[in-house]
């Protein structure tokens, strides 16, 4: 298994570097001594059973909660970055979101459009483009409370996309998408559509870090995988190194096996024959 810290640092100013991070809530350590690197141009998936600290880790790298250890985004210590410069470097899709007042879809997404997009037409154009990308073209005038859960999740993603629109702004470091279970309330078509969107963002030079529950989607789209268990890093490496039955079975305490996928190289994960469901 690769360990990024034993290797020569590969372009620190285009990476998310998490070094010995511990996050405690009250006196309980939810995330313990976790280290990993994510590189722009790749999709990194964080997987693991419920309660393994995935979302807490995500909150730490998003700058929401205090952490011990060090987190560097594009070479800058997260602690030294205020909300404004951070907002220019990364967008965060939260796991669940409630909006307090009945905004229209265009108003919700408009909150993500940075202030330097000054003209009303430019803002409207970006909002429409983002809606097209998430498959909700023409939804600008809809009222947020009237949308289904899946539509709301995609509108939020469009808002986040608007915030970090160009994956690599001219003459600057790459931008990042931090996605906490981005497809949890979507049907299978939109799950693949949204993951393809994230992969495309990475292919254009941006960085993507996504907390994932669905192992098959992870196998299909992740370049690198971090496996969490009980707040610790269980494994970290390229997809093909992680997707081994014994490792995944150990991660989830549940016997799993891999079936060759239709495309050949991406496997499908299913419970082992004879697995006990009790």
């Amino acid at each position: 298994m690769i360990d990024p810290f034993r290797q020569p640092s590969q372009g620190r100013d285009t990476a998310l570097a998490v070094e010995n991070v511990t996050v405690s809530i009250g006196r309980v350590a939810i995330v313990r001594d976790v280290s990993f690197h994510a590189h722009a141009g790749q999709v990194l998936a964080i997987i693991g059973p419920s309660g393994s600290g995935k979302t807490t880790l995500m909150k730490a790298i998003s700058g929401d909660i205090a952490h011990d250890g060090r987190i560097f985004l594009n070479g800058a210590d997260l602690r030294g970055l205020g909300p404004e410069p951070l907002a220019d470097m990364r967008g965060v899709l939260p796991q669940s979101s409630q909006i307090a007042f009945p905004l229209t879809v265009a108003e919700v997404i408009g909150l993500g459009v940075p202030g330097h997009v000054a003209t009303r037409n430019a803002r409207a154009a970006r909002i429409s483009d983002a809606l097209e990308k998430v498959g909700l073209g023409g939804f600008e005038g809809r009222s947020w409370p009237d949308l289904s859960g899946g539509e709301q999740q995609r509108v939020q993603l469009a808002r986040v996309l608007c915030q970090v629109w160009e994956p690599v702004p001219e003459g600057a470091s790459p931008r990042w998408l931090f996605l906490d279970e981005p497809v949890s309330s979507l049907d299978i078509k939109h799950q693949y559509q949204i993951m393809a969107l994230a992969a495309d963002y990475a292919a254009r030079g941006g960085g993507v870090v996504a907390v994932m529950h669905d192992l098959n989607l992870t196998a299909a789209f992740a370049d690198t995988v971090l496996v969490m268990k009980q707040g610790r890093r269980l494994a970290f490496g390229a997809g093909e190194e992680i997707f081994r039955p014994e490792l995944l079975s150990r991660a989830y305490d549940f016997p799993l096996r891999l079936v060759p996928g239709a495309a050949g190289d991406r496997p499908v994960i299913v419970p082992s024959a004879g697995a006990s469901f009790s």
Partner: peptide, 27 residues
Amino acid sequence: MDTATSRRQEPSVRIPKVLRAPDGNRE
């Protein structure tokens, strides 16, 4: 497909139609 869905569904009840710009912009 999604545009077809949006055409089928009733317009929002929370924002009266007369007060709602089609581009969702009420400025």
